[in-house]
């Protein structure tokens, strides 16, 4: 992985299919290679656009007489993809830093871009959850260039939603303690909640966790507003 990173590898990265070693190597490159970050960002947005083009209908019977509308954020994503191709803003990737150096470089990038960052968790691996929490705590205590606290959103969906569930989170106390940071919002994806409920799980969220209609929508909105993105 010294030179060109293939689209297959980037696809595997955004689909959460790389093993730990491959992921770590790619994350190093993504941190320092803006063009590569742009390619990854473009693939991610493409994935979200496709999801937005085929919204899930709750009941088949609703098909006959009703037309459905795609999520509102599809348009924002499309604008990003179609008009800002090649833009590299917004993409930072991170796994629990082996060294503080990586975190500091990312923090500098966040400060440079206005001090706003959205942290995304899409995994129920305990190590990933812990890394995300650690990151959230560090970001919440950091300051922007003007000395003000960063604005941080911590969004969980897919398997990552378990972190925010009463009775399902291995780090419930730490999640609860995040509410001490006024500059940090913890947000659960409503679509992911519904999917867990369909499987018969009780989805009661930990205190102070907010709900967004969809994680993709929330992330898309923040990215188009110029927030930095960190995938935990």
């Amino acid at each position: 992985m010294h030179n060109e990173i293939s689209d297959e590898i980037l696809s595997a990265y955004i689909d959460n299919e790389l093993d730990a070693a491959e992921r770590a190597r790619l994350l190093e490159r993504l941190t320092s290679d803006a063009a590569l970050g742009g390619r990854a960002c473009e693939l991610w947005r493409l994935k979200q656009m496709l999801r937005g083009a085929y919204p899930l209908l709750p009941e088949k019977s609703a098909l006959a007489g009703r037309r459905f509308a795609p999520p509102r954020w599809t348009q924002a994503l499309a604008a990003s993809l179609l008009l800002l191709l090649g833009a590299t803003s917004g993409w930072v990737a991170h796994e629990r830093a082996e060294s503080e150096d990586i975190f500091m470089r990312q923090l500098e990038a966040i400060r440079h871009d206005g001090g706003r960052v959205v942290l995304h968790l899409f995994s129920d691996e305990p190590a990933r959850m812990e890394a995300a929490l650690h990151m959230a705590e560090q970001l919440a205590q950091a300051q922007d260039q003007a000395g003000k606290p960063l604005r941080v959103e911590f969004v969980a969906n897919g398997p990552g939603l378990h972190l925010l569930r009463v009775g399902g989170s291995p780090y419930a106390d730490r999640v609860a303690h995040l509410n001490q940071y006024a500059n940090l919002r913890v947000i659960a994806c409503h679509e992911a909640m519904q999917r867990l409920q369909e499987r018969g799980l009780d989805v009661t969220l930990l205190p102070s966790v907010e709900i967004a209609p969809s994680a993709e929508g929330e992330l898309a909105e923040r990215l188009t507003q110029g927030w930095r993105y960190i995938q935990a």
Partner: peptide
Amino acid sequence: DSDYEQNEIVRRVR
């Protein structure tokens, strides 16, 4: 109009 534009995007993706 905004819905129309959005529909066009969805249509194009599909």
